[in-house]
Amino acid sequence: MTMSYDLYGAKRLSLLSAKDDVEKALGKVFEERDSSYQGGVYYMWGVSDSENFILKLNVDPFDGDPAEQKYPEHKILLYINATECSSDIEKAMRKNSNFELLRREFF
């Protein structure tokens, strides 16, 4: 079974409008959470030990620099973790959201 770990980014959305955008595109409801590790308020769908999606600001909580240094122009990040549906997710995101695929890794 091949698992994909994808990273999407958005340049011009607030975190709350990004949440609405992703929920509409994917048909999933994200839960608000708060963690200093994630840089404060973030949104999550799923559980941490299986497929999950994390939506957060592109800010490193320790130094204020972008969390994803290769993509400093993307204000919002969406991590898709341990999915077997990466191509379906990419189609939905491309068609129905303001996010773009930044990285895909397979394990």
Score class of each variant (00 low, 15 high):
71 Y>F: 15
103 R>F: 03
83 T>L: 10
23 E>K: 10
47 V>T: 14
104 R>E: 15
27 G>F: 00
28 K>E: 05
95 K>C: 03
89 I>G: 04
38 Q>A: 12
104 R>A: 05
37 Y>F: 14
17 S>Y: 04
70 K>D: 15
85 C>Y: 12
78 L>E: 12
71 Y>D: 03
58 N>H: 00
65 D>L: 15
63 D>F: 06
23 E>D: 10
76 I>S: 05
40 G>Q: 02
54 I>W: 03
31 E>L: 12
48 S>D: 12
71 Y>I: 04
9 G>L: 09
105 E>L: 01
34 D>T: 13
39 G>E: 08
11 K>N: 03
84 E>S: 08
85 C>R: 14
44 M>N: 01
38 Q>N: 11
61 P>E: 11
60 D>H: 11
36 S>C: 06
42 Y>N: 07
82 A>D: 11
12 R>Y: 08
75 K>Y: 00
47 V>W: 04
84 E>W: 04
49 D>I: 10
58 N>M: 02
20 D>P: 02
51 E>M: 14
84 E>F: 07
95 K>A: 15
30 F>G: 02
42 Y>M: 06
45 W>H: 15
96 N>V: 02
58 N>C: 00
15 L>H: 08
4 S>N: 12
57 L>A: 08
89 I>K: 05
66 P>N: 06
92 A>S: 14
55 L>I: 12
33 R>Y: 06
74 H>P: 03
29 V>Y: 11
77 L>K: 12
90 E>Y: 07
64 G>Y: 03
86 S>R: 08
62 F>C: 00
41 V>S: 01
66 P>D: 02
21 D>N: 15
106 F>K: 12
8 Y>C: 10
49 D>Y: 12
91 K>A: 12
20 D>R: 13
